[in-house]
C-alpha cells in the first residue's frame, strides 16, 4: 500500500484554480491522520510552472506530466494519465476539487481503477484499523447526511467547494518529479474545443465568498440590475431562485437549490425569496444569511441571521451605497 495522498491540480490558462487549494487543504488533513505524505499531480503541456505554487501550499512532491495531448483537458486523457500514475505509484487516496471537470473524469477513473469514488465530500476520515478512507457527504439535496467508506485504494474523493479551508502557504516546497507517459489522441475521447466565457468577468457561484440572490420578488429580469450593482461592490456572484429561473429572468447556471447549485458562501443575501424547501437546501449552510423581504413571515426570514423587512427596491440600493461608503474607506 502506498503512503501518499494525491491531489490532482485543476488549472486553466496557466492558472491554478482556487478549489485545488481547498482539495490540498483536505488532503493535508487526511495525510496527517493517515501518516502519509501529500503529493500533487499536474497534467498538461508546459504546466510544470504550477509545481512551485503547489509546493508552497504543502505538497511534498509534485508529479508532473508534460504531454502534447494533455494540452487541453479531456476526460480520456486525464483518466489514462492518472491510471498509469496510480498503478505505478499506488497512492492511498486521490483528492480532487468537486468541479465540472472532476465530475467529468473521476467516475471514468474510478471505473478503470475498479475503486470507489465519493464525490462532493464535506469531511474526510481515516480508519487506522482498516486503512480505509471515509467521508461525509450530503444526499437528497442536503436532506440527509451520509458517511460513506471506500473499501479499496486508491480511494477517490472530491471536495465540495468551500467545505475545506484552502491549504496555507506554509509548505516547505516540493520535489518535482517529471513522469514520462504517452497519451494518444484516440485515448482522449474528445477534447474541449473552446471555452465560451461571458464577456464580463463573472464570479463563479459555487466558489464565491458572497452571493446575492433574487427571487420572485424581483418582479422581472431588468430589475436584477439593482442586485448586479450590489454584487459588483461586494465582488459577489449572482444567484436566483427556481421561480426566477423558470420565469426566464436569469439563466439556469444561476439557480440555487435543488436542480440548481449548492452554495456555501460566507455571506448569502436573499432578496425577494420566500424560501421554498427546494431553495433552502441550496443555501442553508451559508455562514451568514441575510434575507430582505416585504413579508416578515416568509420561511427564509426565519432561517436568516439578519432579516430585513421592507421593499427590496429601496433597501438594496441603500445597502449598495452603504457598502460602497464603508468599503472605500
Amino acid at each position: 500500500m502506498g503512503s501518499e495522498i494525491w491531489v490532482v491540480a485543476e488549472h486553466r490558462g496557466g492558472q491554478l484554480r482556487r478549489p485545488t487549494l481547498e482539495a490540498l487543504g483536505a488532503a493535508r488533513q487526511l495525510a496527517t491522520a493517515a501518516g502519509a505524505a501529500v503529493a500533487a499531480v499536474v497534467l498538461g503541456k508546459n504546466a510544470g510552472g504550477l509545481a512551485a505554487e503547489l509546493g508552497t501550499h504543502g505538497a511534498a512532491r509534485v508529479l508532473w506530466v508534460d504531454e502534447e495531448n494533455l494540452d487541453v483537458y479531456s476526460s480520456g486523457g486525464y483518466t489514462h494519465a492518472l491510471t498509469e500514475l496510480a498503478r505505478a505509484h499506488k497512492p492511498l487516496a486521490i483528492v480532487f476539487a468537486a468541479s465540472s471537470q472532476a465530475r467529468d473524469f473521476a467516475p471514468r477513473l474510478a471505473a478503470r481503477l475498479d475503486t470507489g469514488l465519493l464525490p462532493d465530500c464535506i469531511e474526510l476520515g481515516w480508519d487506522a484499523a482498516s486503512g480505509r478512507v471515509s467521508a461525509k457527504r450530503f444526499i437528497n439535496s442536503g436532506k440527509a447526511l451520509a458517511t460513506v467508506q471506500v473499501k479499496t485504494s486508491p480511494a477517490l474523493v472530491t471536495t465540495r467547494p468551500k467545505a475545506f479551508a484552502p491549504a496555507g502557504a506554509d509548505g516547505a516546497g516540493a520535489e518535482t518529479v517529471k513522469c514520462d507517459l504517452k497519451v494518444d489522441a484516440a485515448q482522449c475521447y474528445g477534447k474541449v474545443k473552446e471555452y465560451e466565457q461571458p464577456a464580463a468577468t463573472k464570479v463563479e457561484l459555487t466558489e464565491a465568498d458572497v452571493v446575492v440572490s433574487g427571487g420572485r420578488g424581483m418582479k422581472g429580469p431588468a430589475e436584477f440590475a439593482v442586485l448586479e450593482e450590489l454584487a459588483q461592490v461586494l465582488g459577489a456572484a449572482i444567484g436566483a431562485s427556481r421561480a426566477a429561473v423558470d420565469a426566464g429572468w436569469r439563466e439556469h447556471a444561476a439557480q440555487v437549490g435543488q436542480t440548481g447549485k449548492v452554495v456555501t458562501p460566507k455571506l448569502y443575501i436573499a432578496c425577494g425569496i420566500s424560501g421554498a424547501i427546494q431553495h433552502l437546501v441550496g443555501m442553508t449552510n451559508s455562514k451568514i444569511i441575510v434575507a430582505i423581504n416585504k413579508d416578515a413571515d416568509a420561511p427564509l426570514m426565519k432561517l436568516a441571521d439578519y432579516a430585513v423587512v421592507g421593499d427590496l427596491f429601496q433597501l438594496v440600493p441603500a445597502l449598495t451605497q452603504e457598502f460602497k461608503r464603508v468599503l472605500e474607506k
Binding site: A110, D114, L118, G142, A144, T147, V148, K151, K302
Partner: peptide, 16 residues
C-alpha cells in the same frame, strides 16, 4: 461495490 454507506443521519441543524 467498492464503497459502502456506513451511516445516514439527519443534516446538522443550524442554530439561528
Amino acid at each position: 461495490s467498492r464503497s459502502e454507506v456506513l451511516k445516514v443521519e439527519p443534516p446538522p441543524k443550524k442554530q439561528t
